[in-house]
Amino acid sequence: MTQALITGGTAGMGLSFARFLAAEGCDLVLVARSRQRLEATANRIADEFGVDVRTIVADLTTDDGCAEVGAAVTDVDVLVNNAGMGLGEGFTGASLDREEKLLDLNVRAVLRLTRTALPAMMERGQGSIVNVSSVAGFGPIMPGSTYNASKAWVTNFSESIAPLARRKNVRVMAFCPGFVRTEFHASANIPTSDIPSWMWLDSDAVVETAMRDLRRGKVVSVPSLHYKVITALIRHTPHSILSRIAERASAISARGHIH
Rank of each mutant, 00 (worst) to 15 (best):
Q3I: 15
I6E: 02
G9F: 13
G12M: 12
L15H: 09
S16N: 08
F17E: 02
A18Y: 11
L21Y: 13
L21T: 08
A22C: 14
A23D: 15
A23W: 12
D27W: 14
L30W: 12
R35M: 08
T41L: 11
T41K: 08
D47W: 05
D47I: 13
D52A: 15
I56E: 02
D64A: 15
G65C: 05
C66M: 10
T74M: 00
D75I: 00
V78S: 00
G86V: 03
G88V: 04
E89L: 10
G90V: 07
L96H: 09
R98K: 14
L102G: 03
N106I: 07
R108Q: 03
T114V: 07
L118P: 02
M122I: 07
G127L: 01
N131L: 10
S133P: 08
G139F: 02
P143I: 05
S145H: 11
S150L: 13
V154K: 12
V154G: 06
S160N: 11
A162P: 09
A162E: 14
P163Y: 04
P163T: 07
P163V: 07
L164E: 11
A165N: 07
A165M: 01
N169E: 07
R171S: 14
V172D: 01
F179I: 04
F179H: 14
T182E: 01
E183Y: 04
S187F: 00
I190D: 01
D194W: 09
I195Q: 01
I195H: 01
P196C: 01
P196I: 02
S197N: 12
M199W: 08
W200L: 05
L201W: 00
D204Y: 10
V206L: 05
D213S: 08
D213Y: 04
L214A: 02
G217I: 04
K218D: 10
P223T: 09
L225V: 11
I234G: 01
P238R: 05
I241F: 02
L242E: 01
R248A: 13
S250K: 07
A251L: 06
H257R: 15
